[in-house]
Every structure is written in structure tokens, then in C-alpha cells.
Amino acid sequence: MSTKLDIYTAKRRGRITNLLFTSVCFLATVTCVIVLFILIWNIILQGKSWLSWDFVDSFPSRFPHKAGIKSALYGSIWLIGLTALFSVPLGVGAAVYLEEYAPKSRWRKLIQLNISNLAGVPSIVYGILGLALFVRALALERSVLSGALTLTLVVLPIIILASQEALRSVPDSIRRSAYALGATRWQTVWYQVLPASLPGIMTGVILALSRALGEAAPLIVVGAMAYVPFVPERLSDEFTSLPIQIFNWTSRPQEDFHHLAAAGILVLLIVLVSMNAIAIFVRHKYGKKIRW
């Protein structure tokens, strides 16, 4: 027995490296979580005493104590509503075309490659496109419509990719069965494939819209205003949005405006978290029911 390796004694070699490596990796993981908590704690600490109903229901002002986010909040709601209106049919339609209609040709491959690359284009570049196309060429000026159209371009690739994923997860047997019952292609898609992939599409749409909600750069390029003391009422009205208001307050040197920014961030984060909570809820409620 003693001449052979004893299987009960662990080999010493590399034990310490192994332990060290594991700990380093574990620390890295923990760092990520801790950083998140520090960030959020910081914002809460800075902003919570400034967060009040008056803050939500007041227009921006030169005086920090009178300033609020009413116009920014309404602007954001307008933007998200319009962006959803434009981007969801376009994005889901494009995904349906690519997954259900397009023949496996080079054209389809090209579109696919193009969409993946568009998802990586910096949002500010979409802002430049929006500036040249919507604001100048189509003469929509610095309107809430220009802003929403620009945001549509930003989120379109995200919605398309997420919807494609969802459509791909619907088994082919569903399509075959529908065709065998005499359904046309569109009837198959509309009555069977789309309902079955709805949870996945909804999740993708909500994530894309929360991205749009937090986006500021392209809106600044298309000319969102920093100071808007009114609520937009028409598509052609000028607008601001939560992230732009936050940006504006943060870039001021006075401490009080930083607190305002923190309070604005809290409102933004609350909206974002609720949107994501809906996404998670949808995924769990409807995602689990369907087992193939």
C-alpha cells in the first residue's frame, strides 16, 4: 500500500494556488455586488430628503428648493409612449419577417448581420442621424416627435433581436400543425406563433424601453431642452426628459443641484425597477406555463 499513491491523502501540489485563485474570483464577484450597493446607497443618501410630491409636481427652476421634474417626467412619458408605438410594431414585424418569412438567402444573412451591428452602434450616432434626418430633413424641429423617432432607431435592434429569440423558441411542430390544418402563413403567425412567443417578446420590449427611458445622449443631439417649464401637449412641442434634467443638474457646480439630481435619479430608478419587475413577472408567469 505505502509504495503506491494513497488516495486518501490529498495532493499538496497546487492546493494553495487553487484556493487563492478561487478566492480572487469570488472577491471579484462580490465586488460587483458591493459596488452596486454602494452606488445605490449613495444616491439614496443624497437624494432622499429632496424627494417629495412637490419635487415631482414642480417645473424646473433656477432656485433648487423650488425645482422639480414635472416637465421631465411628462417628457419621458411622452417619449416612451411614442417610442413604444413606433418601435414595437416595426421591431416585431422585422423579427417575424426574418424568422417566419425570409428565405434563407444572402439577403437575409445581410439583414441579420446588419441588425447585430446596429445594436453595437453608439446611441449618440443615432442622435446625429436623428438630427440630420428628423430635425433638419423632415423639418420636425426640436420636437418630442423627433426625440421619439430617434429613440425608436436606438431601441429597434434590441427589440428585433429579442423578438427573434422568442420566435425561434417556438417549436416548429406548432407551425407544422397549423399549416396542416389549412392555416395560411399569416394565420399561423398571428394565431399560434406570436401568442406562444409573447412572453419573450414582452420581456425584450420592456428591456428595450427601459433602455430608451435612460437614454440622454441622442436626445441632446436632436435638441432636447434643458429648461422646459411646461408639459408637452402636441407632437411638435419642445421637450425635456428625466435623464436630461438629471444631466443638467449634475453638470452644475452647486451642491443643492446635485441633491436634486440624486432625487431625480431616484425617480428614474423607481420607474426602471418597476418596468423590470413587470418584465420578470411576465417571464415567470407566462414563461413557465408553456413547456414544450
Binding site: S173, S177, A180, Q192, K289, I290
Partner: peptide, 17 residues
Amino acid sequence: TLRKRIGMVFQKSTPFP
């Protein structure tokens, strides 16, 4: 029309969800 007149049942049962 053809597929309405000729129904089909597959190997694996494929109920719609």
C-alpha cells in the same frame, strides 16, 4: 383548401399551447 380536406396528425402530439 387542400389541407382543409386532407387533415394530418403528427408523430409527436403537438397541441397548441
